[in-house]
């Protein structure tokens, strides 16, 4: 356990330069943005009045040397202050805090659908290597990794909403005639359950299915591919033949021998997929008018709200780094061979 603690400390320390780099890069990017923020904030009055422009620049800290500005920027970030959006007229952290729960809800739903199906499909294919079932999984997953998520969403809407009428209208988390439950956690599904509002609960579950399925397809595809190849690797090992020869039941062979060995690559891929998911969320939420961070990003793009876009970038960067960190820690928990 002592080794593990040392590993943990080292790994946490290694987070520092990456996150520092992230901040430095976003700071650099925000500084090559065309246009003077003071002019954007002050409007035409300031342009004609240089003295007022100076005052405003001083207020925003723009007259200080670059490295001081960077330190201020970092200190603000450490206080969870992601900046001020002139276009929305409010602090970005406030808006982002409210936008987080719908996105988490969507991402978790996509993972709940995607991870088990992906793992199962991979094992299924590996155990039937080069048979019909294997080919079906391989072709489907090739399609899954090749299909842009926004196009897949569109097809889902055409088929399940326009043609079959089984999905609800693809706008938001609830049907428009329903009112949102009282905010407790911010997660509509959980809040409606906590307030005992069964109609809302069922309706929100119904609404999340289509966007979550759209997002999960890529997860399924990538996981199935990785799972297939890692199970195929394990199946041909000597100890598998021995176990088979001893006469261990097939499901124990698969669950205890094959599956556990295939878990490491699965964790890595799942962590990487979370990053792709964050990009996919922007596209999916745009199509489904899902009121989360993705739609927020899209609206910020439309209104050229630079500070908000940079805030999303830095936030998703930090979240992604932390997810990879968790994946590293999970290795040790899952695999007893990993020694620290």
């Amino acid at each position: 356990m002592k080794g593990f603690r040392k590993f943990l400390v080292l790994r946490v320390v290694s987070l520092v330069p990456t996150i520092f780099g992230l901040i430095l890069l976003t700071f650099f990017l925000t500084h090559i943005i065309p246009g003077n923020p003071a002019i954007i904030l002050g409007g035409p009055e300031v342009v004609s009045n240089p003295a007022e422009l100076k005052v405003l620049e001083a207020e925003l800290g723009l007259n200080k040397p670059l490295y001081i500005q960077f330190i201020i920027y970092m200190v603000q970030l450490l206080h969870f202050n992601l900046g001020y959006s002139f276009i929305q007229g409010q602090y970005i952290s406030y808006e982002i805090g409210a936008r987080f729960p719908p996105t988490i809800e969507l991402a978790v739903a996509a993972m709940i659908i995607g991870v088990p199906i992906g793992i199962y499909a991979g094992i299924f294919a590996a155990l039937r290597a080069n048979q019909v079932g294997d080919h079906a999984v391989r072709i489907t997953s090739l399609l899954g990794i090749s299909m842009p998520v926004f196009f897949l969403d569109l097809l889902l809407i055409i088929v399940f909403f326009s043609d079959l009428h089984v999905a609800p209208s693809p706008f938001g988390q609830l049907s428009p005639q329903l009112s949102y439950p009282r905010t407790i956690t911010g997660f509509v599904i959980i809040d409606s359950l906590l307030t005992g509002n069964i109609t809302d609960f069922a309706n929100s579950l119904w609404h999340i299915v289509l966007p979550a399925v759209g997002l999960s397809f890529a997860v399924i595809a990538v996981l199935a591919r990785v799972m297939r190849s890692s199970v195929l690797d394990v199946v041909n090992k000597d100890y598998m033949r021995t176990a088979f020869a001893i006469g261990l039941p097939r499901n124990i062979l698969i669950r205890k021998y094959a599956l556990r060995n295939a878990l490491l690559p699965t964790i890595t891929v799942t962590a990487i997929q979370m990053g792709a998911l964050m990009g996919g969320v922007v596209l999916t939420e745009t199509i489904f008018s899902w009121p989360g961070l993705g739609l927020y990003t899209y609206n910020s793009i439309l209104s050229l709200d630079y500070p908000s876009i940079m805030a999303v970038a830095i936030l998703s960067g930090v979240v992604f780094v932390l997810i990879n960190f968790l994946a590293d820690i999970l290795y040790g928990v899952v695999d007893p061979r990993v020694k620290y």
Binding site: T18, G21, L29, M278, G279, M310, A313, S316
Partner: peptide, 21 residues
Amino acid sequence: RVMDVFLAFPSLIFAIAISVI
């Protein structure tokens, strides 16, 4: 280390940030 920082961003979001700027 520079590459690590670039990889730390989800790629689509990084691409959005760059092309917006």
